[in-house]
C-alpha cells in the first residue's frame, strides 16, 4: 500500500506543483501586495493595512465600474442564455442543415476577443455611420459606441454574438441527453410545444442551466479583451459629478490603475473583484442546484 501511495503522490506532484506556482503562490502574494504601497519596482515595500481598500469605495470611477460590471453581467446572462437556448432549440429541431447551422453559430466563439472588438468597432464607427449617411437615417449617423447611456448594451450584444454559439453547444448536448420517450409521451398526452419546452425540456436540462449561467456570469464579470478593443472604456460620462469612462468594466479599471503604476491599489481592486465574483457565483450555483433533477 505504501508504494501505491508514493506513486499517487508522484503522479499528483506535477499538477500540484504547477497549481501552486501559477495560482496559489501568486494569489497569496496578491493578497499581500494589496495591503502594501508597492509600485511594481520599489524594493522597500511598506505595509499599509486596508488603506488601499478604504479609498476604493469613495472613488467615483471604481464605484461606477463596479456598478456597470454588475449591470453588464445581468444583461449578458439574460441575453446570452436566451439567445443560445433559442438557437439550441432551432438546431435540435427538424430543420435542414442543422450541422451547418451549429458550426456557423459556433464560429464567432473561435475569433479572439481582441480581433472581434476591432471588427465590431469598425462596424459601429464606420460601416453603420456610412450607411446612415448614404440613406439619411439620423439614428445611425452617430456611432452607437459614442452614446454613454447605451454603450454597455452594445457590448452585451457583441458579447452575445461571440458567446451564444458556445453556450448553445452545452444546451444542445443537454437536449440530446433527454430521452425522446419523455417528449413523445408528453406529445401523445396533448401537451403543446411551449408546454413541452417549459414543463419537460427545461426542468430536465436544469444542470445545463447551472453550468451555462455560471460560465456567462464569470466571463461577463471578468470581461476585458473585447472591452479594451471595442470601446476602450469610452465615451466619457458624468457620475457623482466627476467625468469618468462610461464603459470601463472592472477588469479594465484594474488594468488602467496598474498601468498607471499603482500596483498595490490595482491589486486591492482585484481582490474586491475576486471576492464579489466568488460570492455571486456561489449564490448562483446554490440557487441553480436546487432546481436540478436526477433522472
Amino acid at each position: 500500500m505504501r508504494r501505491h501511495r508514493l506513486v499517487s503522490i508522484l503522479f499528483v506532484a506535477p499538477c500540484v506543483f504547477a497549481f501552486a506556482m501559477n495560482i496559489l503562490i501568486p494569489f497569496g502574494f496578491g493578497l499581500y501586495y494589496s495591503m502594501t504601497d508597492w509600485n511594481g519596482v520599489n524594493p522597500d515595500i511598506n505595509f499599509v493595512g486596508f488603506d488601499n481598500f478604504a479609498g476604493l469605495f469613495s472613488s467615483p470611477d471604481f464605484i461606477y465600474s463596479f456598478l456597470i460590471t454588475v449591470a453588464y453581467t445581468a444583461i449578458n446572462i439574460v441575453l446570452v442564455n436566451a439567445v443560445s437556448f433559442g438557437l439550441s432549440l432551432i438546431v435540435t429541431g427538424r430543420i435542414r442543415g442543422r450541422n451547418f447551422l451549429r458550426a456557423g453559430f459556433f464560429i464567432p466563439y473561435l475569433i479572439g476577443g481582441i480581433v472581434l472588438g476591432y471588427i465590431w468597432q469598425f462596424i459601429f464607427n464606420n460601416a453603420l455611420v456610412a450607411v446612415g449617411k448614404s440613406l439619411s437615417i439620423a439614428a445611425l449617423q452617430t456611432s452607437f459606441l459614442s452614446r454613454p447611456g447605451s454603450v454597455i448594451w452594445i457590448m452585451a450584444v457583441v458579447n452575445t454574438w461571440q458567446y451564444a454559439g458556445y453556450i448553445m453547444l452545452i444546451y444542445v448536448a443537454a437536449i440530446q441527453g433527454i430521452p425522446a420517450s419523455l417528449m413523445e409521451a408528453a406529445e401523445v398526452d396533448g401537451a403543446n410545444y411551449p408546454t413541452r419546452i417549459f414543463k419537460i425540456l427545461m426542468p430536465m436540462m436544469a444542470n445545463a442551466f447551472t453550468i451555462s449561467l455560471f460560465l456567462t456570469l464569470t466571463t461577463s464579470f471578468k470581461q476585458f479583451d473585447m472591452n479594451l478593443t471595442l470601446t476602450n472604456g469610452g465615451p466619457a460620462t458624468r457620475f457623482m459629478d466627476t467625468p469618468i469612462k462610461a464603459s470601463q468594466l472592472l477588469a479594465m479599471n484594474i488594468f488602467s490603475t496598474a498601468t498607471a503604476n499603482r500596483m498595490a491599489e490595482a491589486q486591492a481592486k482585484a481582490v474586491v473583484l475576486f471576492v464579489a465574483l466568488v460570492v455571486v457565483a456561489l449564490l448562483q450555483v446554490a440557487a441553480n442546484k436546487k432546481k436540478e433533477v436526477e433522472l
Binding site: 459614442s146 465615451p235 466619457a236 467625468p243 469612462k245 503604476n261
Partner: peptide, 18 residues
C-alpha cells in the same frame, strides 16, 4: 502624476467634446 492624463483629464476632455 502617472495616469492623470489618461484616467482623469481624458474623460473630462471627452465629455467637453460631447
Amino acid at each position: 502624476p502617472d495616469g492623470a492624463g489618461q484616467n482623469v483629464f481624458g474623460p473630462i476632455f471627452d465629455l467637453f467634446a460631447q
